[in-house]
């Protein structure tokens, strides 16, 4: 199965969408976000997990997520992130752009002549 390693800037925008999307379920700590992406994509999008944290800081600085300390399922101190109203609005806008874009690329790739 092909695996994408995070090439850096290319996936910045993607990472942002993934994080915001993961938070729609409710507040989550970094590890939970990583696990959610892993499970949802079937581990296809192998992001470097450490890069989640600078991305979260950036989102927080822009007011798209907030954070607070809490206790994890196994009673350890963990920082929980939640999406803000502005975060939701951004996710909505960006996901529609993304979907259009990926559909367009898909159509191109499916056009004749076939690769196979």
């Amino acid at each position: 199965m092909p695996t994408f390693r995070d090439p850096g800037d290319l996936l910045q925008g993607t990472l942002r969408i993934l994080i915001l999307k993961s938070l729609l379920l409710g507040p989550a700590h970094g590890y939970a976000i990583a696990r959610w992406i892993e499970d949802t994509t079937g581990d296809v999008l192998r992001i470097e997990e450490g890069s989640l944290y600078p991305a979260l800081r950036r989102l927080q600085d822009r007011g798209l997520v907030t954070s607070e300390w809490g206790l994890s399922e196994n009673n350890r101190r963990a920082r929980y992130y939640s999406i803000t109203r502005a975060g939701r609005a951004l996710l909505r806008a960006e996901s529609s752009i993304w979907l259009e874009y990926s559909q367009a690329v898909t159509r191109v790739l499916r056009a004749e002549p076939s690769l196979a």
Binding site: H29, G30, E49, G50, Y53, W69, S72, R77, A78, R79
Partner: peptide
Amino acid sequence: GDVEDELAFHLQSRIER
């Protein structure tokens, strides 16, 4: 300390899994 806690929590959870 907070940053350390946050990262340690992540790594620890992954190791346990």
